[in-house]
Amino acid sequence: MSPHLSRRRFIGVTAAAAGLGLVPFGLAAMADAHLVTWHGQAMGAVATLQVHHHDRAVAVRLVERSLAEVRRLEAVFSLYREDAALVALNRHGILVAPPPDLVALLAECRRCWELTQGAFDPTVQALWTLYRDHFSRPDADPSGPPAPALREALDRVGFGPVAFDANRIVLPRRGMGLTLNGIAQGYVTDRVVDILRAGGIESSLVDMGEPRAVGSRPSGEPWRVGVADPEHPELVGDVLEATDRAVATSGAYGFHFDRDGRFNHLLDPRTGTSGRLYRSVTVLLPTATAADALSTAFSLLPPEDIRHTIQRLGEGQVHLLTVSGDAVMLQA
């Protein structure tokens, strides 16, 4: 497997209690406020948390609670930790007494699956495994996996019959697996927002893989969120304003299974092929969970279906960059 470009994941929190102005990173805080900063790793990415508060002890507690929550959720949603609940589910096909957060996130998966008529589907893990294994071989056919193998993988895709409640989660077919990589970062972002708000934070920009603006900036202006340039993902291609909105972007540039870039991570659960409709799709919605999931699904849908979906939602804004370079904005 040879990724062309990895999706950049910078995890950050910049938060201020009501009435406090934010100060530039690395400078001393205002005389009446305390700045507590933490650097490290979270959700597999470089992370920075900054919290400003009149009471330094409160700021420290908010940072500690946020980090504890991120680490707790990593132990639920990770595909790579042997002790993760999701790994146990995929290994055995059943999970008894599942963590409540896993059940809650699967309920949101169901909602997004229904909204998009199956375009968002966490059971695409079987397809991911197929492409990963195929292109990991030194003699891999550059045209992709053989048709019989693709059909076999598609037989293990389909969220409809997955059963879950507070007592158990059951995958109905042998060899099925779930991936929550298209929604979990948004969920973690929303949980950190809940912690900050409970601690009195009313102005914040939280990014656990998908940014969410809490309120406006202390100046009263909207937060400004950069969107990656699909041709040069390390650069900002557009800047969007957000107040009490999450911003999530998906694009084929994020990850490629093959060196030539023909097969990307946006796998269509209906066909098993990679999405190629757009260079990038950016979604603005009140929660990062929904924005994260729908930016993935919308990458596989034509504009008329996207418009229909956000009309059903009754809210949201979608920015499409087509393969020809045209910018299209859809709004509920």
Rank of each mutant, 00 (worst) to 15 (best):
S274I: 01
T249W: 06
R8P: 11
H53Q: 12
G254D: 12
S216L: 10
V51K: 00
F159N: 00
A166D: 14
Q125V: 07
Q185F: 14
A184G: 11
E69M: 15
P269L: 12
T37H: 11
I183G: 06
A293R: 08
R9S: 05
P302Y: 11
R212M: 06
D244F: 08
G21M: 01
V124I: 14
V283K: 06
T123N: 03
N167D: 15
P286K: 05
P230S: 01
A153S: 09
E234V: 09
A42Y: 02
E234S: 13
A17L: 03
M176F: 08
L300T: 13
A85I: 06
S2Y: 14
A97W: 07
A31D: 07
D139P: 08
T243H: 11
V247C: 12
I94C: 13
D244I: 03
P148R: 07
D83P: 05
T282M: 05
V281T: 01
L330Q: 05
L301W: 05
L62S: 01
V103F: 08
E114A: 04
R61G: 10
L180T: 00
T123D: 10
Y253D: 09
L105G: 01
M43C: 10
F257T: 00
A29P: 14
V124N: 04
R197D: 04
V318A: 10
G118F: 07
G316D: 07
P211S: 09
G21E: 09
F25R: 13
A228S: 13
P122D: 13
G19P: 11
H54W: 07
R312W: 08
D165V: 06
V227K: 00
G160K: 05
F10V: 15
R312T: 01
R137T: 13
F164G: 02
A15N: 03
D83E: 14
G254R: 15
A198K: 06
P100L: 10
D260V: 05
A18Q: 12
L301A: 06
L20R: 03
V214T: 11
R276Y: 13
V70Y: 05
L49Q: 00
L106M: 15
Q117W: 01
L73H: 12
A147D: 11
A248K: 09
L300I: 10
I310N: 02
Q185R: 09
C109Q: 11
E241V: 00
R111A: 12
F159M: 05
S216N: 09
E202P: 04
R61N: 02
G118V: 06
F159G: 00
L22Y: 03
G220K: 01
L321S: 03
P99H: 11
D244T: 01
D305S: 13
L105N: 08
R312H: 08
A297K: 00
G182N: 03
S66F: 10
A104E: 13
F255M: 05
A327E: 08
H52A: 09
E315G: 00
G314W: 14
L67P: 10
G40A: 04
A84R: 04
E64Q: 09
N264I: 02
